[in-house]
Design a protein around this nucleic acid. Structure first.
Length: 422
RNA sequence: GGAGGGGUGGGUGAGUGGCUGAAACCAACGGUUUGCUAAACCGUCCUAGGGUGUCAAACCUUAGCGCGGGUUCGAAUCCCGCCCCCUCCGCCA
């Protein structure tokens, strides 16, 4: 949600930000509505003020047994006009809010400009893709050969974009999730949260899924939304609150299933478990002081990278260009892991700084130490990491010629000491 | 699902239809006092808008006592609907 005041103060800056996103200017239209709205509001409030004043006088007159008839007539006349004024104020306000709520966040200054993912910029790489002395398979084939990954069974139950994992592979996925969660809580200072997986409209609005992206979510017959990421419940946890500055930063993490309709992804990644309707993810959320969200963003990204380093999985970090960023983000780093089976890097984490965009939507503020002028906090979220895709990466990077999979050192404690599966 | 009780500033908790944006207490913050700590005393202390104002300060004003309607000249207070919480009962992982 954008700040009307900042648009008033700097309409050109607002439009310039939109332009970087590839969007048309909106400031002039918004400000025109805004001035109509303020005129309507002032008119409405002046009537109310007069009504309140007259009512007080009526009370005083009646108490002394006087005749307040003239004043009561005046109030009655005012009351004829108030509803229309109120409605005008309300309607204009709602119109402005709807516009503000539907415009994506403005990119940070240091985000590269570009139309789509082709303009993303690689920042760094870690690790070297392993040289195989055989042709590495993709996870799909490895899983099938082991008989531990069953897409047909899942299709029978649930249709496309689901998978059934079995035996050691199911355990390996569980191990990965536990390992990540323990790393983020034990070493990186995130507090573990076990949140609801179903949320109401307000939460989905707060993080920016609604009103524009409802079709990407699953909805229950109770009107709940299945969370597409734990970012939604974790971030909204601080909605409608005024925190103390001392409490910042607040770092939370959760291992949850995530549900996505993948409405716009028809025909994309149809094979394998890259893109599923349901997957597990360890999510990190930071609630940061607005002056320090940039450094928190770097820190969070490092926390996500740490997982891949511990697992010995090669990866690269890219910064998304203005045209490829999500709705709520001012800056996003994607981490892409090397997948030998596909011979390329694929997204395994996305770490975003949302600035005060979500905080405005959910009314999350903090009280500065000096006590005056509550400010909106900044929210950040990042995967640490997507569990299903990490499983894929482990399978493909640690596969052996005989079709078995080596268990990375870091996971063995979670696998009963086992060194390989299959 | 049934019956009953309840939702008021950060917390506890008053509140007769107008004098209540809201007592009191606690917490917090500033100050006085103090050898230090503690205590005591004084003061400040909700939020979001709009207007006047050169930023600031200050002032005026609107709204908010779970949410939404209604009655009334006037609603935290009365009426209706809804939501949530608590207790008991039923059902249930």
């Amino acid at each position: 949600m954008h700040d009307l005041k900042s648009i008033r103060d700097n309409p050109d800056g607002f439009d310039a930000g939109l332009k970087r996103r590839g969007l048309e200017p909106r400031a002039a239209a918004i400000l025109a509505l805004d001035s109509r709205r303020r005129a309507a509001q002032t008119a409405f409030q002046e009537m109310q003020a007069r009504r309140n004043e007259a009512s007080k006088q009526i009370g005083a007159i009646k108490k002394q047994g006087g005749d307040a008839g003239a004043l009561m007539d005046e109030v009655a006349a005012l009351k004829e006009r108030i509803p229309a004024a109120e409605e005008e104020d309300r309607a204009l306000g709602a119109e402005i809010d709807a516009i503000l709520a539907s415009i994506p966040n403005l990119p940070a200054d240091d985000v590269p400009e570009g139309p789509d993912e082709s303009a993303n910029v690689e920042l760094r790489r870690w690790g070297v893709p392993k040289a195989f002395d055989f042709t590495p398979l993709d996870h799909d084939a490895i899983g099938a050969k082991l008989g531990l990954m069953d897409f047909d069974g899942a299709a029978k139950l649930s249709g496309a974009r689901f998978v059934v994992l079995k035996g050691q592979l199911a355990r390996l996925q569980r191990a990965i999730g536990q390992f990540m969660l323990d790393l983020q809580t034990g070493e990186n200072g995130y507090t573990e949260i076990d949140p609801p997986l179903m949320v109401k409209d307000g939460a989905a609005f707060g993080t920016g899924q609604l009103p524009k992206f409802g079709e990407d979510l699953f909805r229950t017959n109770t009107g709940h939304w299945l969370i597409p990421t734990a970012e939604v419940p974790l971030t909204n946890l601080i909605g409608d609150q005024i925190l103390d500055e001392k409490q910042l930063p607040l770092r939370m993490t959760a291992l949850t299933p995530c549900f996505r309709s993948e409405a716009g992804a028809a025909g994309k990644d149809t094979r394998g478990m890259i893109r599923q309707h349901q997957f597990h993810k360890v999510e990190m959320v930071s609630i940061a002081h607005p002056d320090r969200s940039g450094e928190e963003h770097e820190r969070m990204t490092r926390c996500a990278e740490a997982v891949l380093q511990r697992l010995g999985l090669p990866y690269r970090v890219i910064v998304l260009c203005t045209g490829d960023m999500g709705f709520s983000s001012i800056k996003t780093y994607d981490i892409e892991v090397w997948l030998p089976g596909q011979g390329r890097y694929r997204e395994i984490s996305s770490c975003s700084n949302c600035g005060d965009f979500q905080a405005r939507r959910m009314k999350a503020r903090f009280r500065p130490e000096d006590g005056k002028g509550n400010r909106f906090i900044h929210t950040l979220n990042g995967s640490g990491l997507a569990v299903g895709r990490t499983l894929i990466a482990v399978m493909e990077n640690y596969q052996r010629a005989d079709g078995t999979i080596e268990v990375p050192e870091a996971l063995r404690g979670y696998m009963g000491g086992q060194g390989a599966i299959g």
